[in-house]
Design a protein around this nucleic acid. Structure first.
Length: 941
RNA sequence: GCUCAGAUGGUGGAACUGGUAGACACGCAGGACUUAAAAUCCUGUUCCCGUAAACGGAGUGCGGGUUCGAUUCCCGCUCUGAGUACCA
């Protein structure tokens, strides 16, 4: 029979499902290997051709590892809480669980058609109570933990309580809220429960905090930052305001340093690590305290002075070595000391500036980045290292949210300070001998310090440590590491998410009893917030803990479930634990993780955070969850266009002009469905059928064809450029689709989808099929001994594919398969000794056709997936001769076959004596001859 | 602005440690088979000059450099894509 891909693929997909072919053992002598894909959010649109790219790559790798003798865990599931289902619920009233269920069914059908080797028995869904029970359980562990800086790990809150009872707050070095109380053991014991709980909340790794959120009144909901564009909601374009709300937060900042250090231990793409480093944003520097000069004269308002406890302005700097160059201080307009620092004379200026700064939107502030603006407060500060009196200004280039919201202005070393000083005629003092500051700041660290008191003559490193030591001695500053990363907000005012397992008593949060987990999402009449702005869960009637206490009404954010799900796959049906100790000890961590780079500072950071926490409390083994990570590139859409002729009155006609001729006519551009276009040539009959109004369309052709215009855009329905894998599978089969997606180019590279070329892969598979069959499609295989040439072809591909897969270069191995099959076709090889091994090597890429041929070759069904990968024997590749390229002065001129048994000198003599080479020498003696054994001969004339 | 990645035929891409640039495939052109189409097969296909061919010249974004030899290494620049944004 010829290659009947549809029947073959259906047959084997059923076989794999019926026999659970890909279900791994939970412990064997085999080494384990865990291949994970980022699980999808099941959207209503289903899969387009870009989605499976990463899944195909990981599937090839998983199948390859099985052949290599590994016990492979390769699971799949759904990140099924999320906005679109909720939005749909708001519009239609349909429960998001129903929408989600339907979408999952579509995803599953589409995934099954591609022939992935997932172990579906371990499927997880983040929205299923069996799963989110454990998400809630992990939340409870975080609530019951605090971060001990001295031990550099999370510890049980009970341990902290014990310490408070015995020693009070002394000796505690914790990552906690800013304003924690100090107390003795006696004082602690005297506190009532409410006071104790209030204090403990400041230490817990998940805690309540007043945070600003993006509140959209029109949509009645809180929006994430990426749902807000320029002050308006991305969906609907309604105004968004900043609103303060009590929110659950995660103390991820406790792990900032470990999250940063861990990056050096994992094999991830460098750009992605860089994004995480920038996000964490570590700066090593110092806090410096500037005393305010003549504090008493700022008596504009008595109460303000009393409220501002401080006579000190604290700044953060990464260049404390430049402190002698400080000629002014700048505070953010929002800085708490601004009002009390402002002298009566300056009050008008400062007020006006603050008002103006407040009015500016983020966008304007950014656009304005180059215009210098600011205002003088009228007050002065004293530089602690030299006693100089310097002006205190405010300016919006200083951000309230970073560092201390105040900076020391060093115009000689910092460009922003330089511009500010020039603009307001403030002094600029050079502090390093080689500094060039005529036109701009010079942030150099080279050279020796000048004008710098006790560090004059020192170099950068020494100067920094000297200044810090001096500041510490004076009590005017200390070394400090600052992070840009903030604690993560862990609450959404939404319905379709995990309920937070917390109830409130006297306004304080308490965990529900562990045996009451899961706390199931209650039914509500509508999926909108209440009229008073409470989250949708407030609508649930009689939803109280023990019938009396109110539950937390916000739900967990989208990243909650995905921050630990890979552990659930290890032991997906465990009712007693999130995963058993035994399963975790066996599977440990993810060996290979494939997914998009858009999760760099979201999912991939939060997952690392939770993993470190779970390790601290002894539940998991590895410090990092994902050893190796690969970002697959994004598939963009490739849109095609037709050009409608515009008549003299400016109206559109029903005539369409081919792309090459549009300069000669007046036309308007229209998207055309890419599925009726092949190689940019539109199928005119299909076009006429596409839409009724085109039934009588006429065409102005070039060379008898209608050629379309092309543009690369996002793949979307409205652009008619969505290519559906279902259509391609129906036409060419899953094996062709799998190989074609890999053939497209390097996995990591983003590229537009272009179906042109899929025929080539399809032809290859048929050619492969034909190797096993005679002219009339009878299966025909020979048991003869293979020839040297055949063995060479086979061992070349064994080696090549092995190398390619190990470095995730799947596109080049597809080429190599084509070369091998072309060679074997030319050799008319139908020998079992060659083809059986070839089937094994090809099976990760094209599993269905391989299974079919494997069984035709007489093997037991289902054994191919665990067949041993053929062993490469380099002896078959050894050549006696090599056709050396002969180049003259670096330019290749000819080839000469030379026995490889000759040594360098003999090879050189052989070449120079050769008639073809003599011709080029033209009687001259070469100046130099370079022979690279087995590579090249270069003659220099 | 900063950081990172990239730029190779008509197209997607290959060349892994400096050693025959353009593998493999698409497309295109010509041919075979066929009443015809599909399918299949064969030949050619970087560009320029010449052209039956041999042969000659240029050539991996641009300009330099190192080297017997550079798509690969170094310096400077241009463009494209991604991330980030007054982070002190």
């Amino acid at each position: 029979m010829d290659y009947q891909f549809a029947a073959i693929e259906k047959k084997w997909q059923r076989f794999w499902a019926d026999h659970q072919t890909f279900k791994p053992e939970d412990s064997t002598a085999k080494p384990k290997y865990y291949v994970l894909d980022m699980f999808p959010y099941p959207s209503g649109a289903g899969l387009h051709v870009g989605h499976p790219l990463g899944y195909i790559a990981s599937d090839i790798f998983a199948r390859y590892k099985r052949l290599k003798g590994f016990n492979v865990l390769h699971p799949m599931g759904y990140d099924s809480f999320g906005l679109p289902a909720e939005q749909y619920a708001i519009q239609t009233g349909q429960h998001p669980a129903i929408t989600t269920e339907a979408n999952i069914a579509t995803y599953r059908r589409q995934l099954d058609q591609i022939g992935f080797s997932f172990d579906w028995s371990r499927e997880v869904r983040t929205s299923s109570p069996d799963f989110y029970k454990w998400t809630q359980w992990i939340f409870m562990q975080l609530f019951n933990s605090w971060y001990n800086k001295d031990a550099d790990r999370a510890e049980s809150i009970d341990k902290l309580i014990k310490h408070f009872e015995q020693h009070g707050s002394t000796g505690i070095n914790a990552v906690c809220d800013e304003e924690v109380s100090t107390f003795t053991a006696d004082e602690w014991r005297a506190l009532d429960d409410r006071a104790k709980q209030t204090e403990l909340l400041k230490y817990r790794l998940t805690y309540l905090r007043e945070s600003t959120v993006n509140w959209c009144a029109a949509l009645g909901t809180v929006l994430a930052n990426d749902e807000v564009k320029d002050g308006f909601s991305e969906r609907g374009g309604y105004p968004v305001e900043q609103k303060k709300m009590m929110q659950w937060s995660m103390r991820i900042t406790a792990y900032a340093e470990r999250l940063l250090q861990g990056l050096d231990t994992i094999d991830w793409p460098e750009p992605l690590k860089e994004m995480q480093r920038n996000w964490i944003g570590k700066s090593v520097g110092a806090l410096v305290r500037f005393r305010i000069s003549d504090f008493q004269f700022r008596n504009s308002d008595k109460s303000e002075i009393e409220n501002s406890k401080s006579e000190i302005i604290e700044v953060f700097t990464t260049r404390v070595d430049t402190i002698f160059g400080t000629t002014f201080l700048v505070l953010a307009p929002e800085h708490e000391l601004v009002t009390s620092l402002t002298t009566p004379e300056q009050k008008v200026d400062i007020k006006a500036y603050i008002a103006q700064a407040k009015k500016k939107s983020e966008l304007e502030r950014m656009a304005d980045a180059k215009t210098v603006s600011g205002a003088f407060t009228g007050s002065y500060a004293i530089n602690p290292v030299n006693g100089e009196k310097i002006e205190i200004w405010i300016a919006d280039y200083v951000l309230a949210g970073y560092g201390t919201g105040a900076v020391m202005g060093v115009p000689s070393g910092d460009q922003r300070d330089y511009l500010f000083a020039k603009h307001y005629s403030l002094p600029i003092i050079p502090i390093i001998d080689i500094q060039k500051i005529e036109t701009e700041a010079d942030p150099t660290k080279e050279g020796r310090y000048i004008n710098s008191g006790f560090i004059n003559g020192l170099a950068y490193k020494e100067a920094t440590s000297t200044v810090i030591a001096k500041l510490e001695e004076m009590g005017a500053g200390k070394a400090k590491v600052n992070f840009r990363m903030r604690d993560a907000i862990f609450g959404r005012q939404r319905y379709w998410g995990e309920p937070v397992p917390v109830y409130f008593k006297d306004g304080l949060p308490y965990l529900i009893d562990e045996k009451d987990l899961p706390l199931v999402l209650p039914e509500v009449d509508k999926y909108l917030p209440t009229e008073s702005g409470e989250p949708p869960l407030a609508r649930a009637s009689n939803w109280k803990y023990k019938g009396t206490e109110a539950y937390e009404h916000s739900t967990m954010p989208g990243w909650a479930g995905s921050s630990w799900y890979w552990y659930r796959y290890m032991d997906a049906h465990n009712d007693n634990e999130f995963a058993s100790k035994k399963a975790i000890e066996y599977w440990k961590d993810v060996d290979l993780y494939i997914g998009g780079s858009e999760h760099a500072t979201g999912h991939l950071l939060y997952s690392r955070f939770w993993n470190k926490f779970l390790k601290d409390i002894g539940l998991v083994i590895e410090e990092e969850p994902f050893k190796k990570l690969i970002n697959q590139g994004h598939i963009q859409g490739r849109s095609n266009f037709v050009y409608r002729l515009i008549d003299s009155e400016g109206r559109g006609t029903n005539t369409f002009v081919s792309h090459g001729l549009i300069k000669q006519y007046k036309t308007s551009e229209l998207h055309v469905d890419v599925n009726i276009v092949e190689n940019d040539i539109v199928d005119i009959n299909k076009f006429k059928q596409w839409r009724p109004e085109y039934a009588d369309a006429e065409f102005i052709l070039e060379g008898g064809k209608y050629i379309c215009g092309v543009e690369i855009e996002k793949m979307s329905k409205s652009k008619f450029n969505v290519v559906n894998p279902d259509d391609l599978i129906a036409r060419y089969g899953a094996d062709t689709l799998r190989m074609y997606e890999m053939f497209l180019g390097p996995l990591e590279q983003s590229k537009p989808w272009n179906t042109n070329g899929i025929e080539g892969v399809f032809k290859f598979l048929r050619k492969f099929w034909r190797l096993f069959h005679d002219d009339v499609w009878n299966f025909n295989i020979s048991n003869e001994e293979p020839t040297k040439a055949e063995l060479k072809s086979l061992h070349k591909i064994i080696h090549k594919v092995e190398e390619d897969v190990e470095r995730f270069s799947f596109n080049t191995s597809v080429s190599s398969f084509m070369i091998a099959v072309n060679e074997l076709t030319d050799l008319k090889c139908n020998k079992r000794a060659i083809l059986q091994d070839l089937v094994i090597i090809l099976s990760p890429y094209a599993p269905h056709i391989s299974e079919e041929l494997w069984v035709l070759l007489g093997n037991k069904p289902g054994t191919l997936s665990y067949a041993p990968y053929p062993k490469f024997n380099p002896a078959y590749l050894i050549e006696d001769e090599f056709a050396y390229p002969i180049s003259i002065n670096g330019k290749t001129k000819t080839n000469v076959s030379i026995p490889l048994s000759l040594d360098l000198k003999e090879t050189e003599d052989f070449v120079l004596a050769h008639a073809d080479v003599q011709k080029y020498l033209d009687g001259k003696a070469p100046k130099k001859v370079i022979v690279v054994k087995g590579r090249i001969v270069n003659i220099v004339l």
